[in-house]
């Protein structure tokens, strides 16, 4: 464990908690893409199946359980409890255009053709594009609540910190995982224009509205 990975995990946890609290306290999921949240629940489900097969550390297990629990709770709030506040008309990204190519790629490019490894690879590839429905929804509505921008900031920051963690681990441990790194770079790049808007607008107290 290194400071970049720990900070990255805490940033990820902060994002997940911020979103869940925002929806729970405001009793509304307006502006939130339910599709992205379903994709994230799928990412965690396919990645953390090793909860059933191997124990790495109390921290690892605890975080995985929290991530899975919060992501399913968020999906439950959006599609069941607070369904009336779900803005389906703006959450129209065709997720099948993500799942099918990612699923195919996971079969073609992986470290080991075993079920658990292919599911892990699918989860890594899917996570790198899972935020697209949310970013697409913001571009359609033309704005985002400030709390939603903080959620996106921490979510984007987590994988950017993981990139530094992978540089650190390569240098100090000789460890690297090309699949995770390439997907992580793609994932972070997708946040770049949001990061620009976040820094130039939200951090200056303005509302995030598009076109910039």
């Amino acid at each position: 464990m290194n400071i970049f990975r720990l900070t990255g995990d805490l940033s990820h946890l902060a994002a997940i908690i911020i979103l869940l609290l925002k929806i729970w306290k405001s009793r509304s999921c307006a502006g939130i893409s339910g599709k992205s949240q379903v994709l994230f629940a799928l990412v965690f489900t396919t990645r953390y199946l090793d909860l059933l097969t191997s124990f790495i550390s109390l921290y690892n297990t605890t975080m995985k359980v929290i991530y899975i629990g919060c992501s399913y709770a968020t999906v439950y709030l959006i599609y069941m409890k607070l369904k009336a506040t779900y803005d389906g008309n703006h959450d129209t990204f065709r997720v099948e255009f993500l799942i099918v190519p990612v699923g195919g790629l996971a079969f073609l490019v992986n470290h080991d053709f075993s079920p658990l490894e292919i599911l892990w690879t699918f989860s890594i590839y899917l996570e790198s594009v899972a935020i697209l429905p949310q970013l697409f929804m913001i571009s359609k509505t033309g704005e985002a609540e400030t709390i939603t921008t903080h959620y996106l900031f921490f979510l984007g920051l987590y994988r950017a910190l993981y990139l530094i963690n992978w540089i650190w681990r390569f240098y100090f441990e000789g460890f690297f995982d090309m699949i995770a790194i390439v997907a992580g770079v793609v994932q972070t790049i997708l946040y770049c224009d949001f990061f620009y808007l976040y820094v130039t607008k939200v951090l200056k107290g303005k509302k995030l509205s598009l076109p910039a």
Binding site: D50, I56, S57, K64, H111, W120, M178, A180
Partner: peptide, 10 residues
């Protein structure tokens, strides 16, 4: 190639 099976990250 990566150290196999070192899935210790979240």
């Amino acid at each position: 190639c990566p150290i196999r099976g070192k899935k210790d990250e979240l």
